[in-house]
């Protein structure tokens, strides 16, 4: 059976595309699928750093596209997560180094080799975005609860719909405390504006920074709310054993204090 190519995009930079790609990729691989994460941010590669694999890069995605090497030579196997492969971006090339036809060929090879390929798209809607989207069958749009991010995501959704790809929405970096206070956009408001299928909600988590710096996949970390959210998102993408979308809730300090106090007496 042919695999699926899923592009992960957002329009705006710094909303967590790369982290999400690495985490969803690892979570999907843990379910037994053969997964490739492809870094299409040519010239500014960093998916390899997030996954802690930068010291093992020999060939990159440009080499595969230009047929300088085989796909297998360029895919780096993750040692901690079975079935997870990274195809790194080139750091020295330019985004104009490849053309659309070559990418379409490359997408065909990816579908043959892997069950699911996650394509990490660069920020912006220029050539890099075009190149990433041309290879994709499905799309995930990442959006943070900020007005600027929603605006860019809306634009990107419009562009994807114009290419007859119906994207799904992943809302990242929710701070439940601020949502409860009314200082942050709630996910209901965002879905109302963007009006696409919601794939999952990921809350702000300090462990993401730790994971990015150490190169340990977020989904392997214990007690990480974001990691668990990415597990559920991967399950939903897989279409099996779909748990309902969990809304991150803020537990009030006073209530918790009261509960622990009562527990102490009891």
């Amino acid at each position: 059976m042919e695999g699926t190519n899923i592009v992960i995009t957002s329009g705006k930079g710094g909303v967590g595309k790369t982290t999400a790609t690495a985490s969803i990729g690892a979570a999907l691989a843990l379910t037994g699928k053969k997964v490739a994460v492809v870094d299409m941010d040519i010239g500014l590669r960093n998916l390899d750093v997030v996954m802690g694999l930068e010291n093992r890069i020999v060939f990159n995605v440009i080499d595969v596209i230009k047929k300088k090497c085989k796909l297998k030579q360029a895919s780096i196997r993750d040692r901690r997560v079975e079935n997870l492969y990274l195809i790194p971006a080139s750091q020295s090339d330019n985004k104009d180094a490849v053309n659309t036809q070559e990418i379409i060929e490359f997408a065909k090879i990816l579908r043959k080799e892997f069950d699911i390929s996650l394509i990490d798209c660069p920020a912006g809607i220029e050539k890099g975005f075009e190149n990433s989207v041309v290879a994709a069958d499905e799309a995930i749009v990442i959006c943070t609860p900020e007005v600027s991010s929603v605006r860019d995501a809306d634009r990107v959704i419009g562009l994807l719909l114009a290419r007859s790809i119906t994207p799904k929405l992943l809302i990242n970096r929710i701070i439940p405390k601020m949502v409860a206070r009314g200082d942050m956009l709630s996910h209901e408001d965002m879905v109302e504006v963007l009006s696409i299928e919601l794939l999952g909600l990921v809350e702000m988590d300090d462990k993401v920074v730790v994971s990015t710096n150490t190169g340990v996949p977020l989904v392997l970390q214990r007690n990480s709310n974001a990691g668990e959210a990415f597990h559920r998102i991967a399950a939903r993408l897989n279409g099996q054993n779909v748990p309902p979308i969990q809304v991150p809730r803020y537990r009030r300090g006073l209530f918790r204090k009261l509960r622990s106090f009562l527990g102490f007496i009891g």
């Binding site: 007005v147 809306d154 504006v193």
Partner: peptide, 24 residues
Amino acid sequence: GRVRSGQKINTRSHLIILGDVNPG
């Protein structure tokens, strides 16, 4: 339909939109 950010609709007559017009 929904008019999304970056999209532009221009007509010389009256315009009725059955849907939302998003910011942008």
